[in-house]
């Protein structure tokens, strides 16, 4: 995975990998856990917890259930219980669809940005 990150061809890819690893590190701190290994799920870096549960960090400010997002989530074909670790927040419909796909959604990995009371 590190080789893939270092092979990044442009600034966007570099930023993507940097943000992804930063989110994974944040998850470890927030959940007081350590990933046993890092894997790629459909090209997305993911951490695997001691309980063998993949955690896919997604740098998304607002997850609305658009055709684009639906395609991505469907394309994941991740095992049930996989955690989608979102930097921002998700709409009600997105949450329902993700839950229906057997995935677990964790929002707001960057606390202190959005207003507490705001729900998309």
């Amino acid at each position: 995975m590190i080789a893939r990150a270092s092979d990044a061809k442009n600034e966007t890819d570099v930023n993507f990998f940097a943000r992804t690893f930063s989110l994974l590190a944040r998850y470890e701190v927030q959940e007081k856990t350590k990933f046993s290994k890092l894997i790629l799920v459909k090209g997305f870096p993911a951490g695997v917890t001691a309980g063998n549960k993949p955690v896919i960090p997604l740098d998304i400010d607002l997850l609305a259930w658009t055709p684009q997002i639906a395609a991505q989530i469907t394309n994941f074909r991740a095992p049930r219980g996989t955690v989608l670790y979102l930097s921002g927040r998700a709409t009600k419909l997105s949450k329902q669809q993700i839950a229906a796909a057997g995935l677990v959604l964790r929002e707001d990995s960057i606390p202190g940005f959005y207003q507490k009371s705001w729900r998309p």
């Binding site: 609305a64 259930w65 639906a70 469907t74 419909l93 997105s94 329902q96 229906a100 998309p120």
Partner: peptide, 10 residues
């Protein structure tokens, strides 16, 4: 649920 109900980016 999975195909007809989509949202627009708000």
């Amino acid at each position: 649920i999975s195909h007809a109900q989509f949202e627009k980016s708000p």
